[in-house]
Design a protein around this nucleic acid. Structure first.
Length: 299
DNA sequence: GATGCGTGGAC
DNA sequence: TGTCCAAGCAT
């Protein structure tokens, strides 16, 4: 190991204890983190939190768990009810996938959220992050959990750059594995702690470095907090896009008690070509179904 | 690996 | 006000 690699590893290892202590004092009290939270509650939270802020998830998660306290309860419903209950959380395909995951859990895992990473990863809508997160947070396993928060903390504290690469790199996985404490429950706490640090302190915009427990160790701070100089991230347009059009159409169906007419849908979007394309894509995704009488409804 | 996929809050 | 972005996933 070279001198620089030795220094790198020592710096990285020094992050763990301060972050654990910081988490002990500053962790938010979130429903899915409580000791009595079920694995199902954790799984639902992870679906909802994909690309969605905690504040918007809280009320929907609460209502969801009241309505469907178990995977089997959700699996017994029509998928459209899941889409309806999803409300305006965004990315409604997640509701469909969560419903499909509940069905798979009911059919293939006797109604119990699986604990093995590979079983979780095989569920609809569960990728590398969500599988690792549920294994760690619901079952206390030792897993490398890499989300946007963790990746940003490591990019700054260890690599000395403001933002991580566009996609997860081999180096990040190796670093995550190196940092992970040996003891499984401690590893699981570290994973949630470093995520929380990214969410509350080491934020994308205006990080609160004054309150950071590892400021002294941070490579980005040591370098003078240089601005990001990588390729610009493409701005995600929304106004006038198919995504907005889909959102409008689906909102009409969510708010209607049953099927709606094509004429009703047409009032929500002026441009006919785009409207038809969006409606077609919603049907293709399974978020909307055409009824026998030519109307449209949730599945 | 690049795209498409919602929504609303913060500035 | 427009811009950015928030615990990703599937294709």
């Amino acid at each position: 190991m070279t001198t620089s690699e030795t220094t790198f590893a020592a710096t990285a290892a020094g992050l763990v204890t301060p972050v654990l202590h910081w988490y002990d004092e500053h962790a938010r009290d979130l429903p899915w983190r409580r000791p009595d939270a079920s694995a199902w509650s954790v799984l639902v939270s992870e679906f909802m939190l994909q690309q969605t802020p905690v504040a918007r998830v809280l009320p929907i998660h609460d209502a969801w768990l009241r309505q469907w306290p178990t995977p089997a309860a959700l699996a017994a419903e029509a998928a459209g009810e899941a889409v309806r209950a999803w409300g305006r959380l965004g990315y409604p395909r997640r509701a469909l996938r969560l419903h499909a995951a509940a069905a798979a859990i009911t059919d293939q895992h006797a109604g119990r959220v699986p604990s093995a990473y590979d079983d979780l990863r095989a569920l609809p809508g569960v990728g590398d992050y969500t599988a690792a997160a549920v294994a760690a947070f619901a079952y206390g396993q030792r897993q490398v959990v890499l989300d946007t928060n963790v990746r940003r903390v490591l990019a700054r504290a260890v690599a000395g750059v403001e933002f991580p690469a566009r996609s997860v790199t081999r180096a990040e996985r190796d670093l995550g594995a190196t940092l992970l404490p040996e003891d499984p429950p401690t590893a699981a706490t570290w994973s949630v702690a470093v995520m929380e640090l990214g969410a509350l302190v080491c934020t994308a915009d205006r990080p609160r470095c004054d309150g950071c427990p590892v400021r002294r160790l941070c490579a980005w701070q040591a370098a003078g907090a240089p601005a990001y100089d990588g390729p610009p991230r493409p701005a995600q347009a929304y106004a006038g896009t198919d995504r907005q059009c889909r959102g409008r159409l689906l909102a009409v169906l969510r708010d209607a008690p049953g099927a709606v007419t094509r004429a009703h849908l047409e009032t929500t979007w002026d441009e006919p070509v785009q409207r038809e394309r969006a409606l077609g894509s919603l049907v293709a995704d399974g978020l909307v179904v055409a009824t026998a009488d030519g109307r449209y409804a949730l599945p």
